[in-house]
Design a protein around this nucleic acid. Structure first.
Length: 563
RNA sequence: UGGGGGAUCGUCUAGUGGUAGGACUACGGACUCUGACUCCGUCAGCGGGGGUUCGAAUCCCUCUCCCCCAGCCA
């Protein structure tokens, strides 16, 4: 089961390969799995994997399992399981089976025994350091452990003893008996089981031995009859081990592992270790901080599942590593929301404007479309009064010729309403503009015959008397360098952008925005896409800016400033 | 100086012997009661060198650069 809309499916090497396999009659269906370790929150990189893993069965027939790779109890927690399930669902996907590697511990244990009985695994009583030393180096072969040739019956007794809790943590491990001289280090008798007295979030204290990733993953795939085990590039040189185990174990199916490049994005970090540090050291306000690249963070920021899915489809699937500009994700959000977000007016940094020829105490109701290109999305009525607020940025006393907004003696249209002319600029003692006196032209009301008079600029506004106050949070990139994790000379935290969050506490919104609920989204015209934050409350609304509108003026302005 | 991968417009990505294509960005223009959207147009690429071939991004040789692997993490 997958998300409703089927995004266009460009050919990529995995899709092409599966299609060929189908043509050759190798499969009747595709079964994949999304296998997170429950030791952190899902991020946009996981989304790429999720979209891929659900898309293949969706296209070819089959299904996807959600499998928690919970073989290391020291790092895993139930709360992460909960968040992962929530995030996958929110992205729009429904898994066929909810699986846990820990459900297979007994089966896996049996597989280990069979390996031992066949002389393909042995218990090694050396400590970790010795084993490491014997592994050799990238250029030198390893040396055999003295335990390597012990009788399999002895290994079996020891391994059974390991399970029975007869030995302390770290006293011994189970190792595959492959080849200590293999050029691929993963084949130099890799560790299959270790003793670890640690409470497991699902199996409790039933086990004191836990399988390693290599021993658990492929066999779990086989148990679930996964046809294609899709993973990232760093597991590429584990594939010979993956295949070796499948080949030598009495598993019920023979999955194949296919690797693809993980997602990297600029101006952020993606590794769980670094994300965990950001959270634990308080650089952000939790895993769902809107500046985080986590699914929870993006959701809170205002990203839609559709935008994340289309992004993941757009970037493609290859084996070459790449870094996707964050702006690509943002554009997918804009494209999605542009089509369906209702337009609203909100003033982030208010500047009072008095319409001197507007009758005092009167309210004029203005009809405003919810969407400029789609009348079916309806309209709402806006109050216009003598005192309004406009955006501070929309007025300039010494404006450059290309500035199309309000300036002394200049004209501008109030969006959905009248053309106004700036007659007077009022400043405080320090010279700061605090108020504008303008006149409005009653003939130019939107929709009236006289409204076709053209002025160069249109600005948004709210009625001072009706507007609701709100807190608005503006987000910028979390880091101020494109590759914060790529600096060998500095900790990535040194590249944190101190201005990644800007809180505006005096924004004014059109009154209809008051009851907006979390999960709704709007375009604040001329500003960007905004959503109510989870902190929002009826009497104290809080909005997040998910993304700005594309802003050609900002670029022009920067250019003008540059010369 | 082991093994495994990867190099195609600025970015991402198609293209396994027959005119290197798309998307994004950028730039220019049209439109505009959002400097948004939309539309039109332009710029721009096969890591280097050799070879095979009528013809090479694609096949061969060679060089260079980048990533991953020496956890009882995944």
């Amino acid at each position: 089961m997958t998300a409703p809309e089927s995004t266009s499916a460009p050919a990529h090497f995995i899709r092409t390969r599966i299609a060929r396999e189908f043509e050759a009659g190798l499969h009747q269906r595709v079964v994949t799995r999304f296998p997170p370790e429950p030791n952190g929150y899902l991020h946009i990189g996981h989304a790429k994997s999720i979209v891929l893993n659900f898309a293949m069965p969706d296209e070819f027939g089959g299904y996807t399992n959600l499998r928690f790779d919970d073989t290391n109890p020291v790092r895993e927690e139930q709360r992460f399981i909960d968040s992962i399930k929530e995030d996958v669902k929110w992205l729009g996907y429904r898994w066929e089976n909810e699986c846990y590697a820990s459900d297979y511990f007994e089966t896996l244990y049996g597989y280990a025994l069979s390996l031992i009985d066949n002389g393909l695994a042995y218990v090694d009583e050396q400590d970790a350091e010795t084993i490491r030393a014997q592994r050799g180096t990238l250029t030198e072969p390893g040396t055999d452990s003295p335990c390597r040739n012990r009788p399999s019956a002895e290994s079996r007794r020891l391994f059974e003893g390991m399970r029975a809790g007869e030995f302390p943590d770290g006293a011994m491990v189970l190792r595959a008996r492959i080849d200590m001289a293999a050029p691929n280090i993963n084949l130099r008798d890799p560790v299959l089981y270790r003793i670890r007295r640690e409470h497991h979030h699902r199996t409790g204290d039933d086990w004191c031995i836990y399988p390693s990733y290599d021993f658990a993953h492929g066999q779990s795939d086989a148990i679930e009859h996964i046809t294609h085990s899709l993973c990232t590039l760093e597991f590429e040189d584990h594939r010979p081990l993956y295949d070796w185990l499948i080949e030598h174990l009495p598993v019920p199916s023979r999955p194949v592992q296919i690797e693809f490049a993980r997602l990297n994005m600029d101006f952020t970090v993606m590794s769980k270790r670094r994300l965990t540090r950001l959270v634990d050291e308080g650089h952000v306000h939790g895993w769902d901080d809107p500046r985080m690249p986590t699914i929870a963070g993006l959701r809170r920021r205002g990203f839609t599942p559709e935008s994340i899915r289309s992004f993941c489809t757009e970037i493609g699937v290859t084996k070459s590593e790449s870094i996707i500009p964050f702006g690509v994700l943002e554009r997918n959000l804009r494209d999605d929301l542009n089509a369906r977000a209702h337009r609203r007016m909100a003033v982030l940094r208010p500047l009072k404007v008095v319409l001197s020829n507007f009758p005092e105490g009167e309210t004029e109701w203005i009809e405003a479309a919810n969407h400029p290109q789609d009348p079916e999305q309806g309209s709402r009525r806006l109050p216009l009064t003598r005192e309004i607020y406009i955006e501070r940025d929309d007025f300039m006393e010494d404006a450059p010729k290309k500035f199309f907004r309000l300036k002394p003696d200049g004209e501008v249209r109030l969006r959905n309403a009248f053309i106004i002319r700036c007659q007077e600029v009022i400043k405080d003692d320090e010279g700061t503009v605090v108020e504008l006196r303008c006149t409005f032209d009653p003939e130019t009301r939107s929709g009236q015959p006289g409204s076709n008079r053209k002025v160069k600029g249109t600005i948004h506004w709210v009625s001072a008397a009706h507007a609701i106050r709100a807190e608005v949070r503006l987000y910028d990139r979390l880091f101020n360098v494109p590759h914060p994790a790529g600096d060998r000379d500095a900790d990535f935290l040194e590249h944190l952008n101190p201005e990644s969050l800007e809180v505006l506490r005096d924004a004014r919104l059109e009154p209809g925005l008051a009851p907006a609920k979390v999960g709704s989204y709007f375009q604040f015209e001329r500003l960007g896409y905004f959503v109510p934050d989870v902190d929002t409350a009826p009497e104290s609304p809080v909005f997040n800016r998910a993304v700005t509108l594309r802003d050609t003026w900002a670029r022009l302005e920067k250019e003008l400033a540059g010369r």
